[in-house]
Design a protein around this nucleic acid. Structure first.
Lengths: 144, 144
DNA sequence: CCGTTATAGTTTCATCTGTAACCATTTGCA
DNA sequence: TGCAAATGGTTACAGATGAAACTATAACGG
């Protein structure tokens, strides 16, 4: 047997990050799905529209770090469900002009507090100092 | 306009974690894929076998936090590729007995240092104190 | 023993995701 | 102008993923 130096997966940072992120995202996603029939991607699109509307699909993609195909699909479901209104841009007929509908706002206002709550529960396990450091780490490793 | 209190997605922790994790994982996955035709899941299975072999498929699933379906699929590709040897357990013929093949060890020994390297590059952006705190945070939020 | 229940692993199906190709429209510039 | 290149967005295809059903074997309780 030669010296194979196997990797300790459970100490390997990319692995641990992936586990944590999946655990958290799936817990949240499951809830949105069950109560509002809303996928994670759909929710991200709605959250961005709530903040910056009106936006084009491309702008939604920029804000959400999703690619344009994913955005297009999420939007077609949201428009179908009557949660987003889509118009054509007056000067550039390629662009869409996207806004939350009234129903979209209702869903947003129901989901947003729950989202915050999930984050709060997560952070409640950490000390003040750990929270600050985590924010700093994320700024360094994944600047938005 | 009523008070809609939209969510700041780019400050929302689950979102940021997901971005970071996906960025890191995809960068690594792409490399393994190109050079060894190895998916992330396959690599995880190999890493665990390297450390604990022989294992049954269920044990691999426990160590990797993957579900048994994902493990089964990864294993069938690895066995097919001659990277893992699969036998039946003597006393319990439901179980498989899994080990890296010689070829599997060769791949492992080529990939493991690269994996460590990725981690090192990532950590190089952080201070000693941030690294320690991050480890502590992960222990709290995603105990393995 | 024998029938029920549990376990190991695979297969199936429906959904999701990423990449590339595609269509329509607009822009840039010869 | 008018034609090539760029842009916004959708569609098509291929591979990945998760839940549930299924097969085979083993364990358990009367």
């Amino acid at each position: 047997m030669t010296d194979h130096a196997p990797l300790k997966l459970e100490r390997f940072l990319p692995y641990r990050l992936s586990i944590l992120s999946n655990t958290v995202s799936q817990a949240i996603a499951r809830e949105y799905q069950q109560e509002f029939g809303l996928s994670m991607t759909e929710w991200r699109v709605m959250a961005v529209l709530a903040r910056f509307e009106p936006l084009s699909a491309r702008e939604v993609a920029e804000h959400t770090a999703m690619d344009k195909v994913a955005v297009s699909r999420a939007l077609s479901r949201l428009v179908e469900a009557g949660r987003v209104d889509r118009e054509r841009h007056g000067n550039d007929r390629r662009r869409s002009v996207l806004r939350l509908s009234e129903e979209g706002w209702r869903v947003h206002d129901a989901v947003a507090p729950r989202a915050r709550n999930h984050e709060r529960e997560m952070l409640a396990q950490l000390s003040r100092e750990e929270i600050d450091t985590l924010a700093r780490i994320l700024d360094k490793l994944a600047p938005v």
